[in-house]
Nucleic acid binder design. Structure first.
Lengths: 213, 213
DNA sequence: CCAGTTACGCTACGAGCCGTAGCGAAAGCT
DNA sequence: AGCTTTCGCTACGGCTCGTAGCGTAACTGG
């Protein structure tokens, strides 16, 4: 995964402990659950992981980078089972995102690192590579399947196809994040269903469909 | 606006300086621009505003509450000119949101306070009342206009109508925020146009429409 | 005019966290 | 062996936090 910072020079000495790495990341996630982003401190994580504070700073520049790597591992679990239809795939993506955002460690960390990244370009790139792209994969997969089934038109020009994919991704991920973290309302099957109707059929379709199945 | 904490007991003594209030909030916004959320400190804001640090703590519990009030004032400017059609109104809402999110003080502060609010319920309520509801107004206005024009069906049941409104709001606000802050790509007229097509006509319509007008 | 009440500026303080330096010991490689 | 890098530990200056204490300023009611 190339999470930690690579040692500045080449090999030849004592190798970095892989156990320490996993212990630190696990301790970071647990600290996020217990304390939240703000009250999480480097010293506390070191104590929890059973390593010295200096060891953390040898591998990560600071709290933001550490937390990004810690939560990024959770996004590895994301997977999209082929459910046979575009509508079902969208609901699947939505519920997958929602499950991750429901976890307390993700909830408190995700917005915080995004906030940091608005004034820290390298961090933003790290967030993109470690977290955002992992989400995006799901959307691209679902889109490719839908095109294979003939449910969505294939865009011949690669550039405009990429623009469309970006648009779709921002709409889906943005809506789920906003619902879960800003509105702080549950992203359940019912919400996913109505959201899917909106995305597939547009505003009028979503408004016309009542609460029933 | 009822931004600061009301004095605990009733009147009778020296009133709080209104000039200090505006100076503090203005200094807070400027500090957000210069330093960003993380490096902003209460002491620094006090110095910029020309007041004592203790004066800040008499009115706000901490950095989060202060920043919420400081950026909330910016959201007062939000207004939706009646542009005659639902499509144009949606583009208007999107560009209004985008203009606010483009400001450096809003950019760095908004995600930060949302992150804080995930582990601080009173703060979340404050964010909702001061910021989110101000955005929501625009969406509700546009929706009502569209229904008056016959562009959207009127939902008779108040409960389901509210659910639909919440859904639409999360989709629009979420997409804009995600595009601007997570993907960190510009929300320009072209993007607003394509987004509007997607919201109005659904996925297939958005994909079918090429880059041209 | 004068007592009562509240806000203000200022100073000072203990507490906590940051990020780094310096040390001796451990663990690999050639 | 000898070299190189990591590790745990301790200690440190610097910064921010949030509060306490004081004398002064501003406004109100008798």
């Amino acid at each position: 995964m190339q999470s930690r910072n690579t040692p500045p020079t080449r090999a030849g000495g004592r190798p970095r402990s892989a156990e320490a790495d996993t212990a630190i990341l696990e301790a970071t996630r647990q600290a996020l659950v217990d304390l939240g982003w703000t009250k999480l401190t480097m010293g506390d994580v070191a104590t929890r992981a059973g390593v010295a504070k200096t060891t953390l700073y040898r591998r990560w520049a600071g709290k933001s980078e550490l937390v990004v790597d810690a939560v990024a591992e959770l996004f590895d679990e994301l997977e999209l089972p082929d459910s046979g239809s575009l509508a079902a795939d969208i609901e699947g993506v939505v519920l997958q995102f929602a499950a991750l955002l429901g976890r307390p460690e993700t909830k408190t960390a995700l917005m915080a690192v995004v906030a940091e990244s608005t004034t820290d370009e390298p961090l933003r790139e790290r967030v993109r590579a470690s977290i955002v792209d992992r989400q995006k994969r799901l959307v691209l997969t679902g889109r490719a399947r839908a095109q294979a089934r003939g449910e969505l038109p294939v865009e011949p020009d690669a550039a405009t196809a990429a623009v469309t994919a970006d648009l779709i991704f921002d709409v889906i991920a943005g809506a789920v994040v906003h619902r879960a973290l800003v509105s702080a309302e549950p992203v359940d099957r019912e919400w996913a269903r109505r959201f899917t109707l909106l995305i597939l059929g547009g505003l009028a379709a979503a408004a016309a469909s009542g609460p029933g199945a």
